[in-house]
Design a protein around this nucleic acid. Structure first.
Length: 564
RNA sequence: UGGGGCGUCGUCUAGUGGCAGGACACAGGAUUUUGGAUCCUGGCGCGGAGGUUCGACUCCUCCCGCCCCAGCCA
């Protein structure tokens, strides 16, 4: 009955879920989970998974758990747990009180391991890691049975119990599932379930010296939590037979694993391991560096969570491997910001302008629209005076073709203010323009000429005596190649493709005074320049802005084409 | 030469035997007090070959290409 009102499935996973709902496969329940390993910060790839896991639950009136897949104490840390929770909440999802840990289930997992041993389906193996590898065979050649494969149930029970008690050194024994050493699927060649590892776990401390592997922990955790649909990425596809094997041989609740293709973004890396390298080797300043594709970095950069969600919805869910163009992400950011970010004027690279015929000491308060896309955002006053700043790039002594902005003898509009005409240029020794002298037309107040005279350009500006100083950080893509893992030379890796000009730090930028109350995290459109966000490094005395993304820039394209 | 997947505009993605649609990108135009936004227009695609069918992106066969798997990582 409810189904009728539901929108059509938008991807193959929703189709499966709806089919399961129709056939009451899980008594009409939908219960998913997001299972991050707390070994790094969440990135845009995780965002896709989060949107799918939580999104499916939301759409079908189900639940989505947060479960930390913490089975490897050597690389997991509490700080990552904290950041992951913060980032999921920021993205806009809520797991309520369903915060779980695979380590919560160590006891149950141990009991189930005993169960499998008793069923003759698991055994303790004394082979070394290297020997196990040799015995496993290759992709094309079958493996061989370990000499310890035929131990009696009693012996296995005793050995495994002693493993748990800490009677054997690290790495000396493992517990393996007894499946099929000749299976075409390598995962079925007697996979390891437990390894001996004396490491302090961030939650269980030193309680355990044996730790379950992913394969042994994951499906069983899903089962314990009553998960119905266990969604994961493609590389786990050939783990599914093992996932099924454990659950079937245990005879417990059996969720369905469904795999989808993970997100790849051009000019971006989405590998926790590689991102950690960028952090640890100082290519960026931290996990939350605004150039990082981490949620923390994107948040600091100014990406609205809504835009990331819209992006994830916009790219779809499928099994084909793909690389999404970064332009698509930027589109969703601009789309959201255009509708929501208040407009403001700021000059990044100031060029002084003196209005010769404007009275000295006079200041006017001009009306400016806060957002032309949303009248309800109202208007504000912007001060105008005789001395102003405009953008250096908005003046050319010798304007190229199609350049509409200011040049000697040219008239342009100052947004919300007056038409001004350039009458003189003062230059320094190097011939660089350092000050413009202009005249204004008092009859054009507000920006319209009563005689119907047109100008081709409208410039943003800031009143010099009223301006506040700020620092601005401009970001470019972190990598110079669309596919950062593609490298020319031998022995090189993605690090060779890091863009040395990914960060440009500007100081002495001039902003309109209304920004003096801007709070950390606030997002604005600097008219004609782009969207900017107040960085946490801002202080009361000095604001720092991050450019989230530039505006679409038609002139830049024309100019680029002109240069050839 | 083992097992598991995947191939639809430049990039994503819809399609479930009946005119191949959408988004982004790109190109052109209209409009504009942001060279923004908006609107219009345009080009561009079913990996290949056979077969079944009145009709095939869809079903069958073969071929080609790409990805994943030989951690006591997840």
């Amino acid at each position: 009955m409810q189904e009728d009102r539901r929108s059509k499935p938008t991807n193959f996973i929703e189709e499966i879920v709806e089919e399961d709902l129709r056939t009451s496969k899980y008594e009409g329940r939908v219960h998913t989970r997001f299972p991050p390993e707390p070994n790094g910060y969440l990135h845009i790839g995780h965002a896709k998974a989060i949107c799918i896991d939580f999104g499916i639950a939301l759409k079908y009136n189900g639940l989505c758990n947060l479960r930390f897949d913490d089975t490897n104490p050597t690389r997991e840390e509490q700080q990552y747990i904290d950041s992951i929770k913060e980032d999921i909440r920021w993205l806009g999802f809520d797991w309520k009180d369903r915060e779980y840990y695979a380590s919560d289930y160590y006891g149950q997992l141990y009991d189930w391991a005993i169960d499998l041993i008793k069923k003759g389906k698991a055994y303790v193996d004394d082979l070394s890691a290297e020997q196990i590898r040799e015995y496993r065979g290759t992709l094309t050649a079958p493996g061989r049975d370990s000499p310890f494969r035929s131990r009696t149930i009693e012996e296995n029970l005793e050995l495994f119990t002693r493993m748990r008690k800490g009677e054997f050194p690290d790495g000396s024994k493992v517990l393996r599932a007894k499946i099929d050493m000749s299976a075409g699927n390598m995962n079925m060649r007697d996979p390891v379930m437990y390894r001996i590892l004396r490491a302090t776990h961030h939650r269980t401390g030193d309680e355990w010296c044996i730790y379950p592997t992913y394969d042994w922990a994951h499906g069983q955790s899903d089962s314990i939590e009553g998960i119905t649909h266990s969604l994961c990425s493609l590389e786990f596809e050939d783990h599914r037979p093992l996932y099924d094997w454990f659950l079937d041989n245990l005879g417990v609740h059996h969720p369905q694993q469904i795999e989808f293709s993970r997100l790849n973004l051009s000019y971006t890396i989405t590998s926790t391991r590689k991102l950690r390298k960028l952090v640890e080797e100082g290519f960026v300043k931290g996990w939350d560096d605004p150039r990082m594709p981490t949620l923390a970095g994107m948040r600091r950069r100014g990406y609205p969570p809504e835009s990331i969600r819209n992006f994830c919805e916009g790219i779809g869910v499928a099994k084909a491997e793909s690389v999404i163009e970064i332009a698509k992400l930027e589109h969703f950011v601009r789309d959201y910001m255009n509708r929501n970010a208040p407009r403001v004027m700021g000059v990044l690279r100031p060029l002084k302008v003196v209005i010769d015929n404007y009275p000295e000491g006079k200041t006017e308060e001009l009306d400016a629209v806060n957002n032309p896309e949303d009248e309800s955002m109202g208007t504000r006053k912007v001060p105008f005076s005789r001395v102003l700043y405009i953008e250096q790039d908005d003046f050319r002594e010798e304007p190229p073709p199609k350049y509409y902005r200011l040049a000697p003898g040219r008239e342009v509009r100052l947004r919300y203010a007056y038409f001004v005409k350039c009458v003189d240029v003062k230059k320094n020794k190097d011939g660089k323009a350092v000050e413009l002298r202009c005249t204004y037309d008092p009859k054009t107040r507000g920006g319209d000429s009563p005689d119907g005279r047109k100008v081709k350009a409208t410039l943003h500006w800031v009143s010099a005596p009223d301006a506040i100083d700020a620092g601005v950080r401009l970001y470019d893509r972190l990598f110079t190649r669309g596919a950062p893992d593609e490298v020319d030379g031998e022995g090189k890796d993605f690090r060779a493709n890091v863009n040395p000009r990914s960060l440009e730090v500007l100081s002495g930028c001039k902003l309109e005074p209304s920004l003096s109350t801007a709070r950390v995290g606030s997002r604005y459109q600097f008219e004609r320049l782009g969207y900017f966000c107040v960085d946490p490094e801002s202080t009361e005395r000095s604001l720092v802005f991050n450019r989230t993304v530039s505006l679409r820039d038609t002139w830049a394209k024309i100019e680029k084409a002109q240069r050839g």
